[in-house]
C-alpha cells in the first residue's frame, strides 16, 4: 500500500522535526558566518495543512515576499523554499554587500537589481546546501539541491508551488518550517523543507524508524 501523510504517527513527526532542527541549525550557522552576525532559529514546526491553508502559511496571501526555491534530488526528493519578507531581503543583501540599511526606511517598493538577485540566490544556495549536507550526513542518503530559482511575488502564489505535487497523492501538504531571526529577534525568513510523499519511507528507513 502506498503510504500517505495520514500514515505518519507522532514518532514520525518527531523525526521530521529533528531533521528540521539539525538541518536548520547547520543552515543558521552558515548564514551567521556569511553575515558575520548572530543568527537564531526557532523550534522547527511540522505543518500538515489542507490546500486552503497553504497560501495563508505566512499570514496575508497577498504579502509581497522573496521566494528562493531549490529542488531536492537524489535518494530523497522534494523542494526547499526560503521565504523572506521584502524588507528582510533588502537587509540581508545590504549586510552581505556591506551597504548601510535605512532602518526606518520603507523597503516595500524596493526593486532588486541583478547583483542583489544573484546575492539572494547565493544565500539560498548556501542555506540549502548546509541544510541538506547535515541531513545527508545524518541519514547516509545521497541528497543534492538544484540551482535556485527566485520569485518576488505574493506569498500565496509562491507557497502554492511546492503544494501542487501533493495534489496528485492527497489533500494535505507537509512543510517542515523553521524561522530564522537575527539581532533583536528580527525575522530574517522562513525556511521550508518539503519532502515528496514518496520519499518519507526512504527517510524513515535511513533513520531506523519503521514506516
Amino acid at each position: 500500500m502506498v503510504k500517505n501523510i495520514n500514515d505518519l504517527n507522532s514518532i514520525h513527526i518527531d523525526v521530521l522535526k529533528e531533521i528540521g532542527n539539525i538541518g536548520a541549525g547547520n543552515a543558521a550557522t552558515a548564514l551567521a558566518k556569511l553575515l558575520n552576525r548572530k543568527v537564531d532559529m526557532d523550534v522547527p514546526r511540522v505543518k500538515i495543512m489542507g490546500f486552503r491553508e497553504v497560501s495563508e502559511t505566512l499570514g496575508n496571501p497577498e504579502l509581497p515576499v522573496v521566494g528562493i526555491m531549490l529542488k531536492v534530488t537524489g535518494d530523497l526528493t522534494g523542494n526547499i523554499l526560503f521565504v523572506l519578507k521584502q524588507q528582510a531581503a533588502v537587509l540581508l543583501v545590504n549586510m552581505l554587500m556591506g551597504k548601510p540599511t535605512d532602518e526606518e526606511g520603507d523597503d516595500e517598493g524596493h526593486v532588486f537589481d541583478e547583483l542583489e538577485i544573484s546575492a539572494l540566490k547565493e544565500i539560498g544556495n548556501i542555506l540549502a546546501g548546509s541544510y541538506l549536507s547535515s541531513l545527508s550526513a545524518l541519514t547516509n542518503l545521497n541528497i543534492a539541491p538544484s540551482v535556485p530559482g527566485l520569485a518576488i511575488d505574493m506569498a500565496g502564489a509562491i507557497l502554492s508551488v511546492p503544494a501542487i505535487e501533493f495534489g496528485k497523492v492527497g489533500d494535505s501538504v507537509l512543510y517542515i518550517e523553521t524561522e530564522f531571526t537575527e539581532g533583536d529577534k528580527r525575522v530574517v525568513g522562513d525556511f521550508f523543507l518539503i519532502p515528496d510523499v514518496d520519499t518519507y519511507s526512504v527517510l524513515m528507513k535511513a533513520l531506523g524508524v519503521s514506516f
Binding site: R52, V54, S55, E62, M154, L159, D171
Partner: peptide, 20 residues
C-alpha cells in the same frame, strides 16, 4: 481557497488570492 470552488447568485464578489 486552493483546490476549491464557489458559486453564488447576484449580488456577490467571488475572489481567490495569490493565484500562482
Amino acid at each position: 481557497g486552493m483546490a476549491d470552488l464557489q458559486s453564488s447568485v447576484h449580488p456577490c464578489i467571488i475572489t481567490t488570492l495569490g493565484l500562482g
